[in-house]
Amino acid sequence: MPRFLGDVELPKDPPYFHQLRRAVRSHLHRYPAAAVVVGLSGGADSLALTAAALAEGVGVHAVCVDHQLQPGSDTVAGQAAATACRLGATAEVVAVHVDQHGSMEANARRARYAALHEAAADRSIWVGHTADDQAETLLLRAARGTAAGMLPVTGQVHRPLLPQSRAATAAACAELGLQPWQDPQNTDEAFARVGVRQRVIPLLTEVFDRDVTGPLARAAQVAAEDAAALDAIVGEQAELGEECAGEPDALRRRRIAAFLHHHGGAVNAGTLARVDALLTDWHGQGPVAVGGNAAARLVVRRVGARLEVGSE
């Protein structure tokens, strides 16, 4: 183990940091990388990921995205970049514009990942999602009608700490003497994820008299793996017709989701059910809205035996 990460002296035998290093080492065994881009917010998860990656010999370029949604956000991003440089990484601050219409959380995520992809070019993008994020994602998506989770790798995005707990990343930062940024939005229950984190999971823990984060995270992983397997079977779905009406429901839903993604439509439990009815319960119903904007709705309609996507 190195004695220093950049200018930061490492303590002797820090157990939580060792745990995260092993997770990174395991990820690198499956997905080798000499250099990566880390999405660094300055919070404990991404800060611990940055340190663990550097300790395992990975060249890290930290991208600190300033969403410009809170006073002083530029200072927070700048401090995160400075900490990354102290650890021996290179770093940059990228200011993004977040669309004020619709879901602020979803719009910020889109803007953040667009910035990360632009900075990464052909390098992997590492983000600090943990098992806690996995469990929260399962509950949030289940409440909206779909069981879903995150994979360790989705395209260019890697999640080396997905099996680790949020408590472990906070403890690792404490071992290294790093002070993560505490985002005030992480305690604002106006955000559904915060409500799940602060109220729902503690209640489930009380009801079952044990920590439920691990089992929820494992269920989310299984859901994500099942979905990926079905996606691989379905592949690209530019066209769709009544020939798939007799297929198993799970396979047909994945075909519909792939069809909607191909044409830029929204995929959620409601749209999937209504588009599915165009195939399996056809009685002349009108088009199904699947997205668009105030100027024009994106709709799916049945024409003969086929589904077509258009605007109205």
Rank of each mutant, 00 (worst) to 15 (best):
D133P: 01
D133V: 02
Q134N: 04
Q134Y: 00
A135R: 09
A135Q: 09
E136I: 07
T137W: 03
L139D: 05
L139V: 14
R141E: 13
A142H: 06
A143P: 01
R144L: 09
G145I: 07
G145W: 11
A147F: 15
A147N: 09
A147T: 03
A147Y: 13
A148H: 13
A148E: 14
G149V: 11
G149R: 03
M150G: 00
L151Y: 12
P152M: 12
P152G: 08
T154M: 10
G155A: 07
G155K: 08
Q156F: 01
Q156L: 06
H158E: 10
H158Y: 11
R159W: 06
P160Y: 08
P160A: 10
L161T: 07
L161R: 03
L162D: 10
Q164C: 15
S165I: 00
A167D: 07
A170F: 02
A171P: 05
A172D: 11
C173Y: 05
A174T: 12
E175Y: 15
G177K: 02
G177A: 04
L178P: 03
P180M: 12
W181F: 15
Q182F: 01
Q182D: 12
Q182Y: 02
P184I: 06
T187D: 11
T187A: 13
T187C: 00
T187Y: 01
A190K: 14
F191T: 00
R193G: 10
G195Q: 04
G195M: 07
G195K: 05
G195W: 12
V196D: 12
R197S: 08
R197P: 02
Q198H: 14
R199D: 06
V200A: 14
I201G: 04
L204E: 02
L204S: 01
L204K: 00
T205L: 03
E206L: 12
V207H: 08
D209T: 12
R210S: 14
D211L: 10
T213G: 01
T213N: 07
G214P: 02
L216H: 08
A217Q: 07
R218V: 11
R218W: 05
R218Q: 15
A219M: 14
A220K: 06
V222F: 07
E225Q: 08
A227E: 13
A227Q: 13
A228F: 09
L230A: 08
L230H: 09
D231I: 00
D231P: 00
A232F: 01
I233Q: 15
I233N: 02
G235K: 06
G235C: 10
E236K: 06
E236F: 01
A238G: 11
A238C: 03
E239A: 08
E242G: 12
C244A: 14
G246S: 14
E247V: 02
P248Q: 10
P248L: 08
D249F: 05
A250P: 02
A250E: 15
R253T: 10
R254S: 15
R255Y: 09
R255K: 15
R255I: 08
I256Q: 06
I256W: 04
I256G: 04
A257H: 07
A258G: 07
F259N: 04
H261S: 10
